[in-house]
Write a protein that binds this DNA or RNA. Structure first.
Length: 488
RNA sequence: GGCCCGUUCGUCUAGCGGUUAGGACACCGCCCUCUCAAGGCGGAGAUCACGGGUUCGAAUCCCGUACGGGCUACCA
């Protein structure tokens, strides 16, 4: 029942911010590699010079590492099949192109992009049943083709798709699937770079990839790849086409429509990598234990099964991610959460040049908000009142307006009680305030502490009041009450 | 237009011929409570896209239709 060690890869293109789909594919690739005791490889597919973004490659490394999805071979760390960057493998592809050319499986095409565009426009306008390249260049020499219009000096190489091309294949997730009949696909571009179709097949074969796991959008290209494997005399890998992540409007998830399509967005928002990983694990895949969304990657791996992957594209809805993020935040130790909050706040500019005192205060205050956070980004704003000078603390006008007739008396009584308090800690503060307000003034706890909270935090909603006062100290707490008293 | 892939509560999902169609998140209520949370308990929410078959019996199998998505590039 145990499968033999599998080699899988993820092959993102450095064309901008890393895509969330890359993380999703990586997660499933890595899981299966782990489940079988195999390897997970990272390959950079930078064959599109026009869309290439230099900074993107490093971002791919960073975000994938942030998620804990580590590879054992890749452009950054090398490996037995290096190089792992397609732009550095141009010499590798060329001989196979020549081989296909000689065997008659491929041919040169000198058609200009303009001619191709016109051809496509015509086909679309005439609603032709058959679309694709018209094979004008097939069987022609350069000289013969040059006589005809729409000629370009630099040719591309196209596959000659046979009439009897096999259109169905077995997918690890979907079983038997069929795909559209391919066009005479370009495999070598005019600039000498291979297209994805050639490069992916050559690299996957040469790198010993056993399972090609990719998005559903590649189903229609698979017959081309299968043809290439056959022509080159190579054994084909297993294919697993994952469903596409979708926007709320059900379209394929895109950076344009959905900020969450960018992996860096999660880092910027204050999501925990373990929460995102857990969330991704739940998309198109049932929980490891029914009814229990929370599961570690190890548990996921131990129960991993391609047959459990759904074929329906899940909508990427943040509500559950938020719930998971809150869960993982609460699961952290106070120290660990303190580290993460500080790291986040400094990195995202919420916290500039903290003094030693402020740093220590923030770490002491973080436990007060731990079970109140959904995102790391909420910590500093929620605790801002602790770092605001007493004189500058703003009182929420709405809360002030809603203040009851007892407010002045409450603040006065609280001030008296706290001024003479011996020990300054939250237990003592609470006891003193209860005695003075609840018992002394006969006000229900629910209402008694409202004015004090407003004075100390500036709001009627805040982290725990007594603990906050302990951290602020007596002097500051009393100053804030005096300030509110003046406005009541 | 053509060819493919898909369709169970708002969302993520369980289900693989016989279930009161289960759970999670979100939502609502109650409890707890110094506010807000967290936690506990409970509730509402799915004629299983629709129409035909097959079958004693269908969310589950088959065929249509509708709807959604993908591909149809010298992009991946």
């Amino acid at each position: 029942m145990t499968a033999s060690p599998a080699r899988l890869r993820v092959a993102p293109s450095p064309t901008g911010d890393p895509h969330v789909g890359t993380a999703y594919m990586s997660l499933f690739n890595l899981a299966y590699a782990r489940a079988t005791g195999g390897q997970f490889v990272l390959r950079i597919e930078d064959t599109d010079r026009a869309r290439y973004v230099a900074s993107s490659e490093q971002q791919i490394y960073d975000t994938l590492h942030w998620l804990g999805l580590d590879w054992s071979e890749g452009p950054d760390i090398g490996g037995p099949y290096a190089p792992y960057r397609q732009s550095e493998r141009l010499d590798t592809y060329r001989p196979f192109v020549d081989q296909l050319l000689e065997a008659g499986h491929a041919y040169y095409c000198w058609c200009s992009t303009e001619r191709l565009a016109e051809l496509r426009a015509e086909q679309q306008a005439s609603k032709a049943a058959v679309t694709g390249y018209d094979r004008l260049c097939l069987g022609k020499t350069r000289e013969e083709r040059a006589q005809l219009p729409g000629f370009s000096e630099t040719p591309v190489v196209r596959m000659l798709i046979p009439d009897d091309v096999e259109l169905s294949f077995t997918d690890v997730i979907r079983g038997e699937v069929s795909a559209p009949r391919p066009d005479d696909q370009v495999i070598l571009k005019a600039d000498g770079f291979p297209t994805y179709h050639l490069a992916v097949v050559v690299d996957d074969h040469l790198m010993g990839i056993t399972h090609v796991v990719r998005g559903e959008e590649w189903i229609s290209s698979t017959p081309k790849h299968l043809l290439l494997y056959r022509w080159l005399g190579w054994a084909e890998p297993a294919f697993a086409h994952m469903p596409l992540l979708r926007n709320t409007d059900k379209s394929k998830i895109s950076k344009r429509k959905n900020p969450a399509a960018r992996l860096t967005w999660f880092v910027e928002q204050g999501y925990l990598p373990e929460a995102l990983r857990n969330f991704l694990q739940l998309l198109a895949y049932p929980p490891v234990v029914e009814g229990e969304d929370v599961a570690s990657f190890e548990e996921f791996v131990a129960a991993f099964d391609w047959a459990k992957v759904n074929t329906t594209g899940p909508i990427f809805d943040l509500a559950k991610l938020n719930a998971l993020n809150g869960h993982y935040i609460r699961a952290l130790s106070a120290d660990e959460l303190g580290d993460r909050v500080v790291e986040f706040a400094v990195r995202e500019g919420q916290w500039t040049q903290p003094s030693e005192h402020d740093d220590a205060l923030l770490r002491k205050a973080v436990p007060l908000v731990q079970e109140r956070l959904v995102l790391l980004s909420e910590a500093v704003p929620k605790l801002a009142y602790l770092f605001t000078p007493d004189a500058e603390l703003e009182i929420d006008p709405d809360a002030l307006a809603k203040t009851g007739p007892d407010a002045a008396a409450v603040v006065a009584a609280a001030t008296t009680a706290l001024a003479g308090l011996g020990e300054w800690n939250h237990e003592a503060i609470q006891a003193a305030l209860r005695e003075a307000l609840v018992e002394g003034l006969g006000i229900k706890p629910k209402f008694a502490f409202g004015p004090v909270r407003l004075a100390v935090t500036g709001s009627n909603v805040s982290p725990p009041l007594f603990e906050s006062m302990e951290l602020l100290g007596r002097e500051s707490s009393l100053a804030r009450m005096a300030k509110l008293a003046a406005r009541l």
